[in-house]
Design a protein around this nucleic acid. Sequence first.
DNA 1: ACGGCCGATACCGCCTCGGTATCATCACCG
DNA 2: CGGTGATGATACCGAGGCGGTATCGGCCGT
Lengths: 294, 294
Amino acid sequence: MELRTLRYFVAVAEELHFGRAAARLRMTQPPLSRAIKQLETELGCVLLLRSPTGVALTPAGALLHEEACALLAQADRVRAHVTELAGPVTLTVGTLADSAEQFGTRLAAAYREHHPAARILIRESDLTDPTAGLRSGLVDVALTRAPFDDTGITTRTLRLERVGVVLRTDDPLAHRESLRLADLAERRWFRFPDGTDPVWQAYWTGSVEDGRRRDRLVVRTARECLQSVLWNGTVGLMPLGHALPEGLTVVPLTDMPPSRFVIAWRADGTTPLIRSFVRIAETVQRTADPTRVG
Amino acid sequence: MELRTLRYFVAVAEELHFGRAAARLRMTQPPLSRAIKQLETELGCVLLLRSPTGVALTPAGALLHEEACALLAQADRVRAHVTELAGPVTLTVGTLADSAEQFGTRLAAAYREHHPAARILIRESDLTDPTAGLRSGLVDVALTRAPFDDTGITTRTLRLERVGVVLRTDDPLAHRESLRLADLAERRWFRFPDGTDPVWQAYWTGSVEDGRRRDRLVVRTARECLQSVLWNGTVGLMPLGHALPEGLTVVPLTDMPPSRFVIAWRADGTTPLIRSFVRIAETVQRTADPTRVG
DNA sequence: ACGGCCGATACCGCCTCGGTATCATCACCG
DNA sequence: CGGTGATGATACCGAGGCGGTATCGGCCGT
């Protein structure tokens, strides 16, 4: 008699209909029927009277409904008390520029549900620090984009993001279905400030640096990068599927390895709170769009 | 946060030692450690301070210990109340002669643990009814021995029992390691009364009836069968591993298909109480001797 | 009589759970 | 100060449970 099973039973007892109860539980009807049957087997008595018109509670079922509600409520209180006593913890989350956007809001909402007492501080980082403050110790956990030098850092891939090149809409190449890096060999390429993570630098300058023009143009933020495309006609790379300002178009690159949207934390600083955040992040990503999970 | 996990945590919190807690829970240490870690992840806080000397509770852990105990106790009460309200039910169990013996006592004990209010009535049947009263409606569930005609009856095999031949200790064949049915072709064979289940009859007269002497000698009980061996020198078959009276020996038969010790109930009369009994029986058999499970 | 709704069943793939083997760390002790 | 034992953590594996899809059976309504 686990709490999960009791939650199932309460749903059926209140809906008096397996299909609706299953929908409320975000599952399908067959496993729900089976779970209730197992519960009846375990308790050794009939809880529900099934009929084609609907479901009725037996006396034992009605009693269990009441008791189960109380038990579940108490379980919720227990969890709340324990997490509360653990102290009002603050979790500092670093995000890489606009990477998080609507994913971040969904994640924050889910996290607050699990830890009502927790505070989340957001620290948005520019493109010069792919760890989004992790390595410098400014944040506990980072929502960012790989690849970067991850020594001492644990990363879990949330989804893969194909990368495209940003062009002015009036660019001759702007309306192609796709492009290859070689098509951009003669363009002006940006670079990051000196001291930027070399793996990161290499990736965003086309994975293989040689034979491509190293421009003096330095960008620090996504906005700078896009503006540089508009004003200077430089090459801009970015993951697909993000909003673009007027006058710009993004064309998929076929020979650019996809970027991984990851959640990362210091390998030596794994706390339950961080693990919890990571777990919730993975769940949120999975429920959001299972097809894109890497 | 399931009740199972809380039971684990309570064990560790009370033993303050993962190994001892695991032993108390009848499991090994690694999955216990993992479960606790997952619990900490879910709650987002540290519950236990590990050290090579032992384990200490954090304040949150101490609180959870208290609350979890209360929650588990309430869950037990809920189960008790619900099963109690379902009424003092009586389950009639049929057993085939002495088949059940110590298995039956263990099963009854386990069943009373789950259903303190239930009453168990035992009805011991002789060898003339392999369904032990199931088909005649005298019992709800039967602990018996297959094979028999099981149309309309559901059976679950609990274990396989090799069959041997019972001989007087002074019989020339009594000290052989094993025998084949052919070695007994010239012996006198018993039979069951007319009207006995034909599958059952065929099995205990050597699976293939032809070429073997059909004696007029009719046995109804295991005792009669054994006495008949002692007094008349007939052939007696029985599963190995049971106690024998003085002066008799059992020799394994190599070409006799093993008999299945089964639990059986009417296919059209499946109630939660019966399912519960079956489930417990399977668990008891498994924990008793996993190697012999069929 | 027949179509539709509802719960039950069969079957499948994945993930969790518990088990075995092994490692890392630290206390204790010679 | 290094060996040794104890303790918890980790890696990996196989089985079972759980949720999914597809389908069945049965009663109700028109």
